[in-house]
Design a protein around this nucleic acid. Sequence first.
RNA 1: GGAUAGGUGGGUGAGUGGCUGAAACCACCGGUUUGCUAAACCGACGUACGGGGUAACCCGUACCGCGGGUUCGAAUCCCGCCCUAUCCGCCA
Length: 426
Amino acid sequence: MLQVKVIREEKQRIVNGLRKRNWSAQQLKVIDRILKTDDERRATQKELDDALAESNRLSKQIGALMGQGKKDEAEALKNQVTVLKTKSKELEEHMDQLKNLLDEMLYTVPNCPHKSVPKGKTPEDNKVAKDWKKPFPALPDDALPHWELAKKYNLFDLELGVKLTGAGFPVYRGKGARLQRALIQFFLDEAVKAGYEEILPPHLVNEDTARGTGQLPDKEAQMYKCELDNLYLIPTAEVPVTNILRDEIVPVKDLPIKMTAYTPCFRREAGSYGAHVRGLNRVHQFDKVEIVQIEHPERSYQTLQAMVRHVEKLMNKLELPFRILLLCGGDMGFASAKTYDFEVWSAAQKRWLEVSSVSCFESFQSNRMKLRFRDADGKIELAHTLNGSALALARIVAAILENNQTPEGILIPKVLWKYTGFKRID
RNA sequence: GGAUAGGUGGGUGAGUGGCUGAAACCACCGGUUUGCUAAACCGACGUACGGGGUAACCCGUACCGCGGGUUCGAAUCCCGCCCUAUCCGCCA
C-alpha cells in the first residue's frame, strides 16, 4: 500500500497517477478522506500520549509517596490517575478505529504509476515497447494447436487431469514431462548465471505471508486454501520469496538482493471459458521460474530494465517470436508502478500469449511488508521490490509445440537439448 | 495425535510489581594503540508513532510471541490464543 506520508507530500503526483488508472473524481475523494483521517489520527495520538504521560508521572509520584508513608496524599493522586485512565482508554479505542479506517481506505488505493506509464483503459492501449521484426513461423494449413499436438505425441493429458483433480490440472507425460523439467532447469540455470540466488521455498504459506505480498485481504478468492491448517497454496513464487525479507532491515550494502525460485503456481481463476482458454492457455496449476529483486529506490528502474533484458535473452535463446508491451495505466496490476509484459506468438492459434510480466512495485509491497534498508548514515528507508516471470512454463510449452511443428515432429530449441536429451518429439 | 519445556533487543541470556527500554557477554559500528593483521582499551549501539528544530539532535508515548484482565503502576501476577523445541506414536 501507499505510504500516507507520500500521499501527503506528493498528493498531486498521486492524484495524477490514479487518473492514469482511470480513477474518477468520485473515486479520488478517498485521497482527501485518507488525509483527513490521518490528521485526526495524529491529533488523537498527541492527546493520548499527553494523557498517558501525565498518568505515568502521577503513578511514579504515588510510588514515592507510598515509600514515604504518605498514604492520604497517594490516595488523592490515585483518583486523578483513574480519571486519566478512563480518558486514555476512550482515546485508545478511537485510535484503533481511526487506524482501521485508514488501513481500509489505503487498501483500496492501487500503486501510483510511474511517469513513463502510458495512459489507457484496455489492453489495446498498451504500448509495444519492442515488436517482433522478423516473420512469424510459416506453418502449413493443417498445423495443429498444442492441445492436438499433445494428443498426437502423448505429451500431456487434460482429461486425465480431470479424473485425478479437476479441469485445469494437466498431467504431463513422456517427452512432455521431460520438456517441462528441461525448461525449468534451463530457466533456473540462466537466473543463477545472472547472479540470482536459487531458492526452493514452501509451496504453502500462512496468512501473514499472504498478506505481505497483498494476496490478502482482498484477493483471497484467487488462492486455494487448506482450511484445516489455515494455509494457502502459493499463486506464484513471488509470495514466499519476497516474504523472506518481511520485517527485515537490511544493510544498504546487501542491495540488490537477487533471488530466483521455481515453484508450481496454483490459481483458482474466476476467468472466462471458451476457445481462448483451451489447452495450456489457462490452467489452475502451472510451473514458473520467478526472479525477484530487492533494490535501492535510486536504482530500481535501472534494475527493471535489466530484468526485462534477462527475460528477453531467454526468449531469444528459445528462438521464439515475442514482443514486449509496456502496460498502460488501465491494464496494470494493482500493486505495480510499471509493468512490462512479454507475449509469445502462438503460430497455430495465431495470437499472442502472455508468458511473463516484469514489474517494479516501488515501495508498495515493502510498505506493507516492512521491508527496509539502512543506508550509510543509519537512516531507515523502505526498499523497492521487483519481480518477473522468467518464465511461465505452460504457455511457453504451447508456443514451442505449435511453432516448431514439422512433418517430421516437433523440433526442440537447441539450447534445451542438453536438458531434454532429445532434439525432436516424434 | 500424546507428553513435557519454552517464547525478552542482531545473537546468547539476566530479570517475579515502581529505581528496567530492559544487566552482562558476543557480534556490528566509530576511535586509540600497531609496520600490517590480531589482541587490548575507550565510546556509540532497538523499532514505531507523535511533538519540536534548517539540521546534528531533543522530548513524549508504545512495544519483552499475540490478545485481554488485575493494579495508582506489569517483561514481571491472572486468563485465552499462537508459535517453537524435545521425547513418544505414525509416516516419505
